[in-house]
Write a protein that binds this DNA or RNA. Structure first.
Lengths: 128, 128
DNA sequence: GAAACCGCTTTCTTTTTGGAAACTACTTTC
DNA sequence: GAAAGTAGTTTCCAAAAAGAAAGCGGTTTC
């Protein structure tokens, strides 16, 4: 019996990890959420237009929609300042900041990946 | 001038990190890729049908498509064994394994997130 | 030789996503 | 009072992603 139990536990562990990844993916779904969180993570806080400029290619509609979803999930906080032309600032909540480890690993990996791709294209041009 | 240059460098760093995250996202785009990589990461290797069972909800078409893209990007390797009913195994390449840090952070975060959600719903039912 | 299993591919349809442009509402600047 | 800037929302449309279901080519099993 012990063997069967061990196998069963391993399978459960695997399923549990898979479920955890899936849970994370659920909150970060959509083309832009991770980029928005990254932007806020790297810069601290941003206004609507700043985000739109920084997250390349995003339109106002999508930015607005994604920010709302991030707010609902308590990853981002929206603050309105009653200034001359109204100012709105977005920032990561403390909970949102707990995602920074994920973002950081993605940033690290992307940087290595870029180096690899560049190296590959260099190797190709040398061979030619 | 020194101040301006520093600001400029910071902005460049931020852009670089954003670009790195974007590069990573590019390779992992699609609803299923991260789940597939996770499954292979946690289990070592899997056959087509095993993957389809393990990645909940995925259909054969999507699984096939996503696996092809992962193969093209050299994250996954496909091995065909010439057995009675043909056997095909998928596994992470050494390069694909470099993504495990990202996956691991996602798994960790998802696990914490689930605890938070459960705690919240407990608190609610207590309050009621 | 019919059924069943593996590893897909193809077709067809639905859903989701995303973008462009116009519009709101309010304020400052010229 | 016209233009321009902030922070969006709304509408309308196109493209992309995804799903369901059927089919295919091969083999083993009964």
């Amino acid at each position: 019996m012990s063997k069967k139990v061990i196998v069963h536990e391993k399978s459960d562990m695997c399923k549990g990890q898979l479920r955890s990844v899936h849970d994370t993916l659920d909150l970060l779904s959509g083309k832009w959420k991770i980029s928005i969180i990254s932007s806020l993570s790297f810069s601290g806080k941003r206004r609507f237009m700043e985000l739109q400029r920084e997250v390349e290619g995003i339109g106002a509609k999508m930015l607005s929609k994604e920010l709302k979803e991030l707010e609902i999930n308590e990853l981002v906080i929206r603050t309105v300042y009653d200034t001359k032309p109204v100012t709105v600032e977005y920032a990561l909540t403390p909970y949102g900041k707990t995602l920074q480890a994920v973002i950081h690993e993605m940033s690290k990996w992307g940087s290595l990946h870029r180096k690899r791709i560049i190296k590959q294209s260099n190797d190709k041009s040398k061979a030619a």
